[in-house]
Nucleic acid binder design. Sequence first.
DNA 1: TTGAAAGCGATACCAG
DNA 2: CTGGTATCGCTTTCAA
Lengths: 364, 364
Amino acid sequence: MMFDGRSWRKEARQGMSGIADVAKLAGVSKSTASRALTGAGYVSDATRLRVVAAAAELDYVASTNAVSLATGRTQNIGVIMPYVTRWFFAEVLEGIHDALLQRDLDLTLYDARPGTQGRARIFEQFLARQRFDGLIAVGLEPSDHELERLLAIDRPVVGVVGEGGATSVVAIDDDNVSRRATEHLIGLGHRRIAFVGGGTGDFWSFVDQQRLQGYLETMATAGLSAYAEHAPSPVDLPGGYAAAVDLLAGVRDRPSAIVATCDEVAIGTIVAARRLGIRVPADLSVIGIDNHEYAEMFSLTTLAQQPREQGAAAVELLVEHIRDPGLPPTRLLLQARLMMRSSTAPPPGAGSAAYLDSELGDVL
Amino acid sequence: MMFDGRSWRKEARQGMSGIADVAKLAGVSKSTASRALTGAGYVSDATRLRVVAAAAELDYVASTNAVSLATGRTQNIGVIMPYVTRWFFAEVLEGIHDALLQRDLDLTLYDARPGTQGRARIFEQFLARQRFDGLIAVGLEPSDHELERLLAIDRPVVGVVGEGGATSVVAIDDDNVSRRATEHLIGLGHRRIAFVGGGTGDFWSFVDQQRLQGYLETMATAGLSAYAEHAPSPVDLPGGYAAAVDLLAGVRDRPSAIVATCDEVAIGTIVAARRLGIRVPADLSVIGIDNHEYAEMFSLTTLAQQPREQGAAAVELLVEHIRDPGLPPTRLLLQARLMMRSSTAPPPGAGSAAYLDSELGDVL
DNA sequence: TTGAAAGCGATACCAG
DNA sequence: CTGGTATCGCTTTCAA
């Protein structure tokens, strides 16, 4: 006895034609149609053409669910990140998105803001669904428990920013980057150099820790530890602004230069300085890390990283891991480039005595 | 003859247990297990408990692909927007994301930047796949052809920002919003009021057109058409900065107040003014639209909209449309609220003659 | 209240 | 090179 299973959902793919329709129109079997369309297996050129024509004729689009079920591949990549509103993350996201688009892969977004209930749900429920062939984790900094959940999913994971360990990672060398920023300032003749940024209490991100570390070590190496000073702040523009006001306002012997943990903080610092009547770079040098979209407008000297490229590289890496699950974890380190603009200069009383940073030569 | 179809992909769901395993462990049939887990159909409490326990025991997670294939529901929502890096869009995205998370729905992101090849691919290929039960289009402003593709997909669509027409929309009344901004300035005694922002050539967004329109009409109504002036600029901070420099630098009889098309442009304007030695609000009043995260830091008076709420509302609307496909299109207009800060004041020579905007009363 | 079996729409094996 | 058929893992009908 025939049972019409369609009855309970006759509207589901209403109008959509399936591969059976294509096969019928082309006068071949479903198998052949499938082979012709996917390119897997032998099909004569003649029939392929007929099938392709039929598919076009019918506006055939394969049901991804059916394909996924049959192949075990979702053609979808998960992206999980702690912020989508911050510049770096949004840029990485776009880089990932564009790279995926080119490979015909979809992107499912998980916005896992630290400390939120949503984040917990993502780790407990959403990731377990494994609606993706692989996952890109951007600056995630998972807790031990979260990491465990992450490794429990049976799909390759690639990180952007951070250490990696068991998974592949693309990042810049954060320690080295703040070192170069600091050295640039020292090279200009500054001694009293402060570091602005990094967490306030709860969320001290790994990246910021590394950058502070690089700064401190560089100061120590230069024998400038006594001048080292750290003004913590939320890692955004208003945060940098507030921290800079605290650091600079009404103080007589303030630092002559500042290393900011990122451009947002650096720009906040510049805005604060201007408001306080402190001239940049005449009275105060500021260097950032990022090359934010606003950097040029504020003439900010910075170490440029390319988040879009990092996103694209992560996609490449992930795709390789999906193709070959046996691949060992890689650590891809991208270089940051010093962008000389005019927020840094020799310190106030330095005159011509200041010597130029070696890297400056590359630019001039 | 038995054929073991698993051979070609024995690793696919390795370790994952299916509903068959759950059923076996609970000592029931797959059907019963399914009913117990999904809550559809009759199951005795006793067996339900056993099934649920078995599922927990095995860490059972339903294969979304199989579920989708069987039910025709993907449990996934598509979000398409022209930018993910701009404040408003990123905020809406977070609002949508969080609302979806609560409803156990996934989010697939389509970043359709105007004029890019990727955008074309999204419309031609990705949307056609219909990997979602519904779509939210944020400030998309589709071309005729794009709109056609959009309507061709057999799924409900909800817009955020814009007109809507055939689809439901949540938005603020852009025309009215710039009217109120302009009236606020006029109320303070300003006459020479310029409008900054809006497209440069190619992309004149609908929203910006409406806001410019509202400004022009308000000026006309107040008999101030002669003073009206429009400085077009890219709709971002550097764009506002550049436009403001052009508008204000080295001019003797410059405007005493500016309506910016959004806060990013307004802030760019403030930064430019400060750099030029023009005091805000003493010499120049600036009002924006948005209540951007930086607005407070720049003491920006603005008409606050709540993008997160708009995103959440869009989700709500969309879910209703999915539940009941017959529902007629709705247009949900949210109110913007005037946030008085200190970037606006009576014009330079006004003294006590300036009268206060009626809306000011609400705040004081 | 439960179970058996027919789909959902594709892919991939095997035989021809 | 092509076609028949058994899956992928789940839901839903229908009969018991």
